[in-house]
């Protein structure tokens, strides 16, 4: 019998490992496929009609997987001009606001993306010839949901810190 805390940690480790692995596999396949396409055309005078579309879909997956990986360490592009002029004791409060905002926005996008995927499923949209598009597109809601979840965790953590800071003095 494993206690829930440890199960949770283990799950998270497996999750991040899967994330990284998927990202690396995507990039490797992308380089390989593009090179294969050049080889086939120049040496064997043949090709693979879906190569271009597949490569572009991989770009989308890399975009989302990369964004998910970036959210792990809260490492997204930001401007952060005001915080350096704010008094230090305000920092945790602004952090809490920003984390909550990001989590809510990403959750909203994830929800809308889920509706989009559902619609594509309903209309039997296809990619790569006859492959169901919704499978490929699922990365949108899933990716944004994970980012939302991560920022929600940051929010909880920073809120905890903030409350402790208020209670301490």
């Amino acid at each position: 019998m494993i206690e829930p805390q440890r199960l949770f940690r283990r799950l998270r480790r497996v999750g991040t490992l899967a994330e990284d692995a998927l990202l690396i596999v995507m990039l490797t396949v992308m380089i390989g496929l593009a090179a294969l396409q050049i080889f086939l055309r120049n040496i064997l005078d043949t090709g693979f009609v879906w190569a271009d579309e597949l490569l572009r879909i991989q770009v989308l997956w890399i975009a989302l997987l990369g964004a998910v990986a970036a959210s792990r360490d809260d490492n997204h592009v930001n401007i952060d001009l005001l915080t350096r002029f704010l008094p230090g004791r305000w920092q945790p409060a602004t952090k809490v606001i920003v984390d909550l905002f990001t989590a809510v926005v990403c959750a909203l996008v994830a929800w809308q993306a889920a509706r989009f995927v559902q619609m594509e499923h309903a209309y039997d949209s296809t990619v790569l010839g006859n492959f169901p598009a919704w499978i490929v597109q699922s990365i949108l809601p899933v990716g944004f949901a994970i980012v939302a979840y991560r920022y929600f965790l940051f929010f909880c953590k920073n809120l905890g810190k903030l409350l402790k800071g208020v209670a301490a003095p």
């Binding site: 990202l23 490797t28 975009a63 990369g66 990986a69 970036a70």
Partner: peptide, 15 residues
């Protein structure tokens, strides 16, 4: 690979 793709993700998601 991972590091560079984190950067790519950060930029493409903005795009």
């Amino acid at each position: 690979m991972r590091q560079s793709m984190v950067l790519v993700g950060g930029i493409l998601i903005i795009l």
